[in-house]
Amino acid sequence: MTTTALPRWIEVRVLAPQGWCELVAETIAIGPCTTVAFGRPSLATEEAPDGFDFVRSFIPAHADTAFVRARIREALRALPETTGVDDLKDLDLEFRPLAPEDYATSWKKSWKPFRVGRLCVIAPWSKSTPRATDLVMRLEPGGAFGSGRHATTRTCMKVLLDRVKGGERVLDAGSGSGILGVTAALCGARSVFGFDVDPNAEPYSNELAANNNVAKLCRFKTAGFESLSGTRGEWDVVLANIYSDIIQSHAGDLRDALSPSGWFAFSGCPSHHADPTRTTILAAGLRIDEERVRGRWHTFVGARGR
C-alpha cells in the first residue's frame, strides 16, 4: 500500500489546566472523531508545564475545514464564560497534521522474532525463515499475556528444551499464555495440562496450541490449585512460572503432583525472595539440582528427594 492511499489526520492539541481536561476534551471533540487522548503526545514531546496536561482530539483530513477549526476555536474561547472559570482563558490551541500511517499494522514493525536455543518464536505474520533444525512457535504477540520475552519464561523454555526427552506428561501450574506448555509439546511431551485462575488464559492458550498444531496434546483450564486435588505423582514434569509466594504456599501440592522419577522447574522468583523460596522447596521434600539465574530472576530445577 502506498502512503498516498492512507487516511490523513489532523491533531487538535490543547494545553489544558489539570482537572479541566475532560471538559476541554469534550469541547474539542467536534465532528466525526470522538476519541480523545490525554497526556504527552510522544516521548519526544516536552512534558506539559506543572498543573497542565495535553488534550488531543483528531480530525480526518477530509473533514478539516475552516468551519470546523472555527467551531473548535469558538467553543474553546467560550469556555471561561460558560464555566465562570478564568483558568480556561487563552488556552494554547494547535492544529498539527500527522504523517500518514497505517496504524493497524505499523506497530508490527517493532516485533522481531526471537530465539531460545533451537526454538524460534515468530509472529504469525513474520516472514523470517527458521533453520531446518529449528522448532518453531507462532505466537500472536502483545495481548494480555507475555510473549515469552520475560527472563523467567525464557529460562523455563530453555530448561524444557534441555530436558524434555519425549513422551513426558507435563503439568503447567499458572499457565498464563500457555507458552511453556506449548513449548513442552513442541519438544515432544506426550500430554500437557495447564491451569490458570485468569479466565482469559484458557482461550488464549488453547488458541496458541491450535496455531502450533499441538491442540490434541494440550489441555488448558481456568482453575487454581484445587484442580490438583486427588492427583498424586501423575506428572513427569511440573512447571510453575508464577509468583514466588504462591510457589511457597503450594510447594506441597506441586511436590505431590510430581511422579517419583519426574523433575520440576519453578520460576518467577526475584532475587530478594530466592532464599525463602529455596528453603520452602527443600522443606517440601524436593531436591534442587540446578538454580538458573537470569537478571534478578531465579529458576529452581530439581526432583523429588533431598
Partner: peptide
C-alpha cells in the same frame, strides 16, 4: 467502537502494543 485510527493507533503503536488486541 474503538478503531486503530488516531489517537489509539499512534498512542499504543509508539509502545509496540498490539493495537488490534
Amino acid at each position: 467502537q474503538a478503531t486503530p485510527a488516531p489517537p489509539v493507533g499512534p498512542a499504543l503503536g509508539s509502545y509496540g502494543v498490539n493495537i488490534a488486541a
